[in-house]
Design a protein around this nucleic acid. Structure first.
Lengths: 335, 335
DNA sequence: CTGTTAGCGCCTTCAC
DNA sequence: GTGAAGGCGCTAACAG
């Protein structure tokens, strides 16, 4: 049925070792022989069996990536970065969604390892001790992607969420705002949630602006929750003159809620987001935001992983990619 | 170094065949023996080698999916549908971006086949004869996902793009519009481009509205091109009173261009999109659109593929999932 | 440059 | 119920 390296060898009148050599581009083959083999391959329609090769060589040229949710834009962008670099280095990607659920994450890590991936890229929520335990049983390199472990012991690439938030809020402050509300993500989320919340607090602190509990509202990253939070802020006696939202989506929700109430952005209230998603420039007014280099996170992690898999001597295994403040039209100076 | 089934056998005092049985849930093992084996597995930290298993059993429980671009929302949604069902049936996914480039598509199809995937899910642009050729060399089932081949010979699941466009334009017509402009995708794209263009034409035809060349503008699916196209329409002497855009993004671009010119949507000009992307309800006014069930396309294709891989007797190998018209706020009756 | 020979780790009859 | 033995298709020394 299936044609094997053995069939090709017979057809070409050489040994299977020789066939293996030409298939693997081993230079030690006479051009003539190589030609004969290629012809036989062509004639028979031979297709190398990567599984057999993997078993024999202990290399599968595939890497596993566990991702929270591929249908989430940010992660999809990371995935694309990963895939592009993977392709460049002739690796394939086994993709597993895990929804930031610990059990699911642990499970897929194990099945990925069973599939003998040559390396693992992990992006998820919190990296717990159980995760570390799973990683320890791995004989192949693991790199964290857009997350970090508490002890910062794992190789990985991430961004400084706190700093990004800090910088975004600082823009608001620089524009004369003193009453700045925050629409946060859940504080349990160390990266997109807690870190950004901290950045907000620190920016206020540095500017000597007292922190107010009632100026913080927790959302779920989505548009609707941005609207809800904004609704709350609007109902306040002493309402904020500026809003910092932990994601663009929530920021856009806030903008629309403000507009629905007959107020204007940024004339009446300024809004600042984080992400620089596609949508940021598809709202009126265009959203000012802190841009996260998601694609690059993926690309850099994968590149790092290739080095690790290759047992290269890597000088650096921790990267913090820098964000960028994008000033568009949703922030105005506070009179 | 690595612990094999053989080590477990020795540790448990049984043969490797028995270990294999318990690992594979073969019922023909005495409970006691099973227990012993499990303990040995635990003690040694044994992890079955899926590659070896794949070679021996000729099944990898992995399916290949070629996708145009995972960072594109619509495709990501399909991918999520695929992955969810795949997980449900204990398959993993090897994901390859191919950007609708024929050569790239053919190449990844081949490497996926080399990797001995148990099945293949293909979503891309046009399915050419070369693609068919590649599929023919496959010994595993292939299903098309959100595309179709010309002769409709391949198993697959898709939506009726032409009908979706037809229905969307019909909404405009039902609202009294006679002067309807279309912002189309490239006509070379059979699905998102040409088919929707045809739907537009047929809807006009059915309503007895003459088709006008100058009421069609080709964009590239993106926001900016929607703006550009709208700019053109606004410059016309006899400008349209309604716009049908082949994607939500272009529709939103059109809306913003209209608003930037001091006109109102839908009072002055109505706009209708296709996709029902997340953004559709994140614009003011909210966009009316024809919704595509992307997640379902993925889910249904994967389910179909499982049946095919399982050599089940499938009565139906072609599915056309139906779209849905979502009426929001961007369409008004034409006075 | 090319052929021979062992495995890689597991599944799968086939006996017992 | 359990064990023995023969591959699965290929790579990787090791000879020659």
């Amino acid at each position: 049925m299936t044609v094997t390296i053995y069939d090709v060898a017979r057809e070409a009148g050489v040994s299977m070792a020789t066939v293996s050599r030409v298939v693997n581009n081993n230079p030690n083959v006479k051009p003539q022989t190589r030609k004969k083999v290629f012809e036989a391959i062509e004639r028979l329609g031979y297709r190398p069996n990567a599984v057999a090769r993997g078993l024999a060589s202990k290399k599968t040229t595939t890497v596993g990536v566990v991702i929270p949710d591929i249908s989430n834009n940010n992660y999809a962008e990371v995935a694309r970065g990963i895939e592009d670099i993977a392709t460049m280095y002739h690796y394939n990607i086994i993709l597993c969604n895990a929804d930031k659920k610990k059990e699911k994450e642990i499970r897929v890590i194990n099945t990925l390892l069973e599939k003998q991936v040559d390396g693992l890229l992990f992006m998820g929520g919190t990296v717990t001790e159980e995760h570390m335990e799973a990683f320890r049983t791995s004989s192949v390199p693991v790199v964290l992607c857009a997350t970090s472990d508490e002890n910062n012991a794992m190789p990985g690439v991430d961004i400084d969420h706190e700093k990004a938030a800090f910088d975004a809020v600082s823009v608001l402050i620089a524009n004369g705002h003193q009453k700045i509300g925050m629409i946060s993500g859940t504080l349990e989320d160390p990266a997109n949630g807690f870190a950004r919340y901290n950045g907000y607090k620190k920016a206020l602190e540095k500017a000597g602006i007292p922190f107010r509990e009632d100026y913080v509202r927790v959302g779920n990253y989505r548009y609707e929750s941005g609207m809800e939070a904004m609704n709350y802020f609007l109902s306040l006696e002493d309402r904020p003159t500026a809003i910092f939202a932990a994601t663009d989506e929530m920021a856009i929700g806030a903008i629309h809620k403000i507009q629905d109430q007959g107020l204007r952005v940024p004339e009446d209230i300024s809004v600042m987001g984080v992400d620089n998603s596609r949508m940021a420039s598809m709202v009126r007014p265009k959203l000012s935001t802190a841009a996260q280099p998601m694609y690059d996170i993926g690309a850099v992690s994968m590149r790092l992983l290739t080095k690790l898999m290759n047992k290269e001597n890597v000088e650096q295994v921790k990267y913090v990619l820098s964000h960028e403040i994008i000033n568009r039209q949703s922030v105005a100076h506070q009179a």
